[in-house]
């Protein structure tokens, strides 16, 4: 039997867990801990919320003057 993981270990494994990078055995230990621990379930939920919040930061704007410069590259290249 593998030793149960502590909460302090769980918070360091959370990214590996979310990324699907934990070996199967560790994944099982992780999930066994989470199932019985409110604090770590909350922590995991907060990490997921954090990822979603960070994902809302994209601004899809290119400054118009810069865009013109980039497009000009094509015309210069074609006439070169």
């Amino acid at each position: 039997m593998a030793r149960p993981l502590s909460c302090q270990e769980i918070v360091e494994l959370v990214t590996d867990y979310i990324e699907g990078a934990l070996p199967r055995r560790d994944r099982k230990r992780f999930e066994e801990h989470i199932a019985g621990c409110d604090g770590c379930r909350t922590y995991l939920a907060q990490m997921r919320t954090t990822i979603i919040r960070v994902g809302r930061l994209t601004e899809e704007t290119i400054p118009p003057a810069a865009r013109d410069k980039f497009l000009e590259v094509f015309r210069d290249w074609r006439t070169a």
Binding site: S6, C7, Q8, E12, V14, G39, T42, Y43, A45, T49
Partner: peptide, 28 residues
């Protein structure tokens, strides 16, 4: 580079070493 401040867990020597002493509050 710790994910969480070590002070939020029970320290070595205590019975529940490494368990949350000050767990996070749900954002719900």
């Amino acid at each position: 580079g710790r994910a969480v401040d070590p002070d939020r867990f029970f320290p070595p020597g205590s019975e529940s070493v490494g368990a949350w002493a000050s767990p996070p509050t749900p954002w719900e």
